[in-house]
Each structure stands twice: as C-alpha cells, then as structure tokens.
Amino acid sequence: MADNAPSVTRTALVRQAGTSKEDVKRTTRRILFGVFMYGVLIFVFVVSALPVVWVIMSAFKDNSAILSSPFSLPNQLNFQAFVQVFTLYNFQTYTLNSLLVASLATLLSLVVYAMGAYVIARFDFPGKSLFYILFTLTLLVPPHTKAQPIFSLILNLRLYDTKTALVVVYLSFGMAMSMFILRAAFMAIPKEFDEAAAIEGASFVRTFWMINLPLAKTGLATAGIMMFLGHWNEYFYAMLLTASAKHRTLPLALAFFTEAFSYDYTQMFAALTVVIIPGIVIYALTQEQVQASVASSGVKG
C-alpha cells in the first residue's frame, strides 16, 4: 500500500480515528490482499520459469529418469546429450547459421533504419510524415499474410534456400519498431551539434556518422537487441524459405528433429536447451533495455 509517503501518514490518521473493530477488519483485508498479491506474483514466477528450468534439468537426465520421475533433479551433470546433439545432428552448423543470419540482418537493418530515422527525426522534407506513418503502420501487417508473395519474390530473385534470403526478409521485419525507437533517439540529440558541425564544414554523411550515430548508441543498442532476438527466434519464414541442412537455422532444426529425437527425450531436451539459452542470456545481459523498449513501443522482435 505504501506507494508514497503522504498516504502512510493519512492511513495513520485514519487509524487513530477509527474504532478497534474497523481496525481488525482493515488488517484482515490487508493480509488477504497481501496473500493474494504474493500468490499472483509467485504464480507468475512459476509459470514463466518452471517450463524453462524443467527443460534444462531434463537435458541432464537419462530417458528412463525423464519417464519415471519428471520432477526429480538430475543426479549428475551429464553433458553427453549436448555432445550428441552437436556431433550427431549438426547443431553447430545450425547455431552458426542462426548467428550469421540474425547478426547480418540486424546490422543491415540498423544501417538502413538509422539512416531513415535520422532524416525523419532531424529534417523537414516533403513526404516526411507520410513515410513515417507508412513505416510504422507496417507493425500491423501480420507476417504470415505476406507468405506467398515473399515466397515468390525470393524464388524470382533466385534466393530460395539460401541464408541470404533469410537475411533479406528479416531485414524488413524490424522496420516499425526500429523507426519508432531510432527516431526518438535521434530527436533527443540537441540540434546544436549538427549546426556546429555544419559551421565547421562537416559533410552530411560525416555529421551523421561521426556525431549523431555515436550519440544515438543507446537507441541503436535497444533496437539491435530487439531485432536480434526476433531474428534468432524466427521460425515461420525459415521454414518457408529454406530446404537444405546447409541453411537451416536452430528453431527450424528443432522442429525438424522431433522424429529423430523421439526415441531419446534427453537429446530432445538438450536440443531445446541449445535453442533457448542464447536468447535468455542476451536478454539477461540487456534486460533493462528490452523492458524499456517493450514498454514504449509495445512490440517484441
């Protein structure tokens, strides 16, 4: 209850005036509310953490332990399943593919959208609001609806079943969110910097690259992290646009191997762990930024 000091004093005042019967009632209500509040918080904690903990735990147990006692802790740290996942099922290729695709797409997106957001934030020019509105409206387009045209486009570009296809398509995903975050970042930079640079005769590109970009690095990092997470996790277009193992990404490989893993749950859980851990680690390192950007833009990835 004590979310600010004045209310505490007021409660105290009210308590002085009240009878002891009311006082009891109030205390019971407060206790009940506390129980409810912490009950909900514990529930939230459990439904979010337990599935992940359970998966990681199971990756260290053998098949029979998984089947007979799903809740037990693993009795040893056995990394064998992880070794198998990497050696027998090529997960190092898939991990590398995921990294390559997600990083390249993120970097390219940052360059493209930083340029766009910079001019939208700092200059007046005909069409500016139209562009901004159109770019942010893309948020409302469900990615699946474009499946067929993008599939055909990639075929026509002769990019089917390449990592390039994924990079190119992912590049388009972060548009609305990056514009939103980066525009705000560039707008926050005082205009005097630009003017000073202009007086010193710095070129347009130089002003952008040497002055504005470094000053917007928080925004760039936020947008970059969000896009990287989204690309790392993407499944639908990876499934649609690639075929061969050479270009398979992790989430896709995971879904692919349910058949292969169905005799060995340990390996399945190990593979799941390999797919989910990097996302969690990146998030853990950057959680403040992730949460802030979600709160402001209302999107993930």
């Binding site: 990294l99 990083s103 690095k217 928080t218 990092a221 970059g224 992290i225 990146i282 390192l285 950057t286 403040e288």
Partner: peptide, 12 residues
C-alpha cells in the same frame, strides 16, 4: 552492460 553487449557482438 552496454560494453558487454558490444564486446559480445564483436566476438560474434
């Protein structure tokens, strides 16, 4: 933290 992220990205 930001530093860590950039190092991480560079390493990648």
């Amino acid at each position: 933290k930001k530093c860590t992220v950039f190092i991480l990205a560079a390493l990648m």
